[in-house]
Amino acid sequence: MTTPPPLDAEALRARLLDGGAYRALDVVTVTGSTNTDLVAAANAGSADRTVLVAEEQRAGRGRMRRSWVSPRYYGLHVSVLLRPVVAARTALSWLPLLAGTALAETVRETTGLAAELKWPNDLLLGGDRKAAGILAEAVTTLDGMAVVLGIGVNVHHDAASLPESAGGLPATSVAAEGAEVDRTELLARLLERLSEIELRWREGVSEEAVDGGMLERYRPLCGTIGRWVRVELGGGRVLEGEARDVDTEGRLVVRDRDGTRTPVSAGDVVHLRPARR
């Protein structure tokens, strides 16, 4: 397989910085983890809407301390530093869901693939095959609360260059699902969409509406809703039932066999089968 071309960093800066969507954008050839780097940058005072992109990560991190490794030039590894000032701190739990919304909408529009989200924010293609993941990290700095959003997307990988699984799911990529896309264009559209969604959320969030009006945009993209799921809550606790909804606080609402509805704010979700009707 021919090695894909590098990202066009100058084109990204011209498109994303000149229009004011972001304050800073750097593309590095290799790093350990873009999230780790931006957490350090947040503590050093980096501005709201700072972006770091790596062509290759050697110590990328996913949820539940999983690793995320990809050959150079094959995927997208991008982190965004955000410093939103919102009325309720609980509203910050919506940021990874906003990133998932931006990612799923962008992949659908750019590739034509039927992308959907597995709560809390894996991107699935071709059913239950994982093509991307999102990791949000809150940072308390001298300049106030910040959140670093990390997004990793498998783009050009063929079957031979994919891991056997990703977070317990079969791994896939945009290319493996039959779509061809330019990484620079995909990244530019993703960051433009994330900027638009996050700004709307900032403007709409309040003590009474921590979703900032974005729940109705997230719900249609969430393939977990309507599925029979097992949620591993930690400490050996497991919840099994039908994922009925995502509520205004971004929690997955699971109805067990007794009809009890439990909102889940954090947990490892396994899709078992479609819900019984």
Score class of each variant (00 low, 15 high):
V80E: 07
R277I: 07
S33D: 01
L123K: 00
E185A: 14
A275C: 11
M214Y: 06
D258G: 13
E55D: 10
D245N: 12
V139S: 13
E185Y: 08
D211E: 12
T224D: 02
T3F: 08
L38H: 13
L194I: 01
E10R: 13
E109F: 07
Y22S: 05
K118Y: 02
Y22Q: 01
R251T: 00
T2P: 13
G168E: 01
A146F: 02
L149F: 07
D122W: 14
W94V: 04
H156I: 03
R193I: 04
R227M: 14
T2Q: 14
T224C: 12
E242N: 06
D256C: 07
V153N: 10
G150W: 13
L272F: 08
R193G: 00
T36H: 11
D256Y: 11
L272W: 12
L169T: 04
R183K: 01
G168Y: 00
L187M: 09
L123I: 03
K118S: 05
E192H: 06
A88T: 10
V231Y: 06
G178Y: 01
L97N: 05
R183L: 07
N154A: 14
M214S: 14
S70C: 10
V155K: 04
G150Y: 12
R251D: 00
V253S: 12
L187Y: 04
A275M: 15
T101N: 04
L97M: 12
L117Q: 08
L194A: 02
G241I: 10
A102S: 02
L162H: 04
A11N: 09
T248F: 14
R244F: 01
A146C: 06
S161Y: 08
G75M: 08
C222T: 09
V51G: 06
R61N: 01
E116G: 13
R273T: 07
S46H: 15
L123Q: 01
E137L: 12
V205Q: 15
A131S: 15
E242H: 11
T140D: 11
A44I: 02
R219T: 05
W119P: 08
Y74I: 08
E180K: 15
Q57K: 15
T110P: 00
R193H: 02
E55L: 14
V269Q: 04
E196F: 00
A146Y: 05
V155Y: 03
V155D: 07
A266C: 11
G168W: 02
V28E: 14
R58Y: 00
V148M: 03
R276H: 12
Y218R: 13
T106N: 02
L38K: 15
G267D: 08
L124S: 13
S67V: 13
D258C: 11
G152L: 06
A21G: 00
L125E: 02
L95D: 00
L7S: 06
A21K: 10
V231I: 03
G19A: 03
V86S: 09
L252F: 06
P5F: 00
M64Q: 12
L162C: 06
